[in-house]
C-alpha cells in the first residue's frame, strides 16, 4: 500500500510556484492535473517533448508512399487504361490522392498514438481525485512511491506550498 497525497490551487501561478518549491526540496511530483494546459508547466515539470510529431511524420510517409505506389501500380501493372490520351504513368494526376492519403494517415496515426500513449480511449476509467480539476482546480499529486518521505512529511510539504485541502489516500498500486 502506497499513499498518495494531493491538494489544489485555484490560481495557476500559485501552482507553478508550488511546483518549483517542491522540486527545490527534492520532492518528486507524481502528477499535476489542470483544467487547461498551463503555460510553463511543461518546463517546470521537465517533461520531455512529445514524440507525437514523429509519429505523424512516419504515418504521413507511409500513407503517401503507399498511396502513390498503389496508383502507379494500378496504372502501369494492374489495369492500365487510356484516359484522354494521357500517359499511363501521369504523375501530376496522382498528386491529389497522394496528398490526401498522406494527411489522412498522418493525422490518424498521431491521434491513435496519442490515445494509446496516454491510456485514453472509449471505456477508459480515470482515477479522479477531485472533480473540480476540470473546472478551476490546479491539482498537485505526490506519491510515496517515488519519494523517500513518509506520508505525513509529504502532506506537510504540500501544505507548506499553500495548497488547499491537502488529503491523502492509500492507493493500490
Amino acid at each position: 500500500m502506497r499513499a498518495i497525497v494531493y491538494g489544489y490551487f485555484t490560481d495557476e501561478l500559485d501552482l507553478l510556484n508550488a511546483v518549483k518549491e517542491l522540486q527545490n526540496k527534492g520532492i518528486r511530483i507524481a502528477d499535476v492535473r489542470t483544467p487547461f494546459p498551463v503555460h510553463g508547466l511543461d518546463a517546470a515539470l521537465k517533461l520531455r517533448r512529445s514524440h507525437l510529431p514523429k509519429v505523424a511524420f512516419v504515418g504521413g510517409l507511409i500513407g503517401g508512399t503507399l498511396g502513390l505506389f498503389f496508383q502507379v501500380w494500378v496504372f502501369t501493372k494492374g489495369w492500365p487504361l487510356n484516359f484522354g490520351g494521357k500517359p499511363f504513368l501521369s504523375l501530376p494526376s496522382f498528386i491529389p490522392v497522394t496528398f490526401e492519403l498522406t494527411v489522412l494517415i498522418a493525422a490518424f496515426s498521431m491521434g491513435i498514438a496519442f490515445l494509446l500513449r496516454s491510456n485514453l480511449g472509449p471505456g477508459s476509467i480515470p482515477d479522479i481525485l477531485d472533480e473540480e480539476v476540470t473546472d478551476d482546480h490546479f491539482q498537485i499529486i505526490l506519491s510515496e512511491k517515488n519519494n523517500n518521505l513518509s506520508e505525513t512529511e509529504l502532506v506537510e510539504a504540500l501544505a507548506a506550498t499553500g495548497a488547499l485541502d491537502v488529503k491523502h489516500v492509500n492507493a493500490e498500486k
Binding site: 492535473r33 494546459p37 511543461d42 517533461l47 496519442f114 485514453l120 477508459s124 480539476v133
Partner: peptide, 14 residues
Amino acid sequence: FGWKGSARHWQRHE
C-alpha cells in the same frame, strides 16, 4: 475517453 487533465496528457494534447 476518460480524460483527467494530467499535465503529461495536456502536453501531448497541445
